[in-house]
Design a protein around this nucleic acid. Structure first.
Lengths: 196, 196
DNA sequence: GTCTATAGGGCGATAGAC
DNA sequence: GTCTATCGCCCTATAGAC
């Protein structure tokens, strides 16, 4: 029998999302989270840099997945094809924990300071994907724009996917949203006018 | 002769950016900012909700400009055309204070917590533009995707514009970046392959 | 304006695992 | 012995309450 209960980190995360859901992010103190996890406040800060970070653990895994998928796309894939492949590669990861994702999303949309953290994580994904595209030989500003457009599609996809009335799988929404982006950006109306 | 020196708000902003530049954001206390501006700590928090907000004042003006320009685009303009018009409408505002923008940008890129604030302001722009597009009759997810793509172009444009070696005007970079987005999203490579 | 709760960092002590 | 996870107590600054 060991001195400590296992998985302190996981217990802190569980306690945190419970309390954030029960009484709100601002109204929850770190001391309360630690207490529910059977630990002290100081230990919380050993595991997480701040009170927000406890909800953003999976972000690193997602970043690695995006980078790997972008890098491993076929050599003749265009930037946007590589990025699309990256988004699709994350589908299983999301589908396997939809309940967690939706609960987490509810807490985040209710708290601006958590939204800020979510946004900087997404920006980090974009920067990493852009760097990967550059290493595939894509020049700037095309690399950054392809990556940022991909993250925009990811953001819209995620919001559609966690919506209460959604019944579509993540991958399908990625494909549909990417198609919608093309329709919007290629500017069919202007083209039509020019051809008229 | 009035009881207080004028423009307390502006003095606080000036003092803040000076101190953030001199010794860094984290190493600067609100008390120090207030002292340099000849005010008290309490007065700082009466003007700005928190220590970050002092650098983000113009954001509301920018949001109003974007919304107005998007709303006032010609009725037959496509979503992406309306968004492009919005970005171009901000050119004068930026050109008139390039020194402030570059100094501010240096402070922000050096501090993650300021980046977070910058990102949520940009996200707010996207949400507002998307809402304006919807009021023009654009359906989801197209409205959000056009708006988010526009913000991505804005972000890339701004970074290119404040770069030390940049000599191009803001408006020109908007146009160039928007063209690059179209090249990237329209996926010329795939089209070529399909036609081959 | 004054008061105060909380975030979050510094540093050392402890008590296991190895 | 070393290494690592946890705890305890110190501190300051933020930001909100009164």
């Amino acid at each position: 029998m060991s001195r400590w209960e296992p998985d302190a980190r996981g217990r802190l995360q569980q306690a945190a999302i419970e309390l954030y859901t029960e009484r709100g992010f601002e109204q929850t103190t770190v001391a309360e989270i630690a207490e529910r996890a059977g630990l002290t406040e100081r230990t919380f800060f050993r595991h997480f840099a701040d009170k927000r970070e406890v909800l953003f653990d999976r972000s690193n895994a997602l970043l690695e997945l995006f980078v790997e998928s972008t890098a491993n796309a076929p050599a003749d894939a265009s930037p946007i094809e590589a990025v699309t492949a990256a988004l699709l590669s994350a589908a299983d990861m999301f589908e396997s924990r939809r309940p967690w994702s939706t609960e987490r999303q509810k807490v985040i949309v209710a708290n601006p300071s958590l939204q800020e953290r979510e946004l900087i994580k997404m920006a980090g994904l974009g920067i990493a994907v852009a760097a990967t595209l550059r290493s595939r030989g894509v020049a700037e500003p095309h690399a950054s724009l392809a990556a940022e457009a991909g993250i925009a599609v990811f953001r819209v996809t995620f919001e559609r996917w966690v919506a209460d009335d959604n019944i579509l799988p993540f991958a399908e929404i990625v494909t549909d949203s990417m198609a919608a982006l093309k329709v919007v950006v290629v500017d069919a109306a202007a083209t039509t006018r020019q051809n008229a």
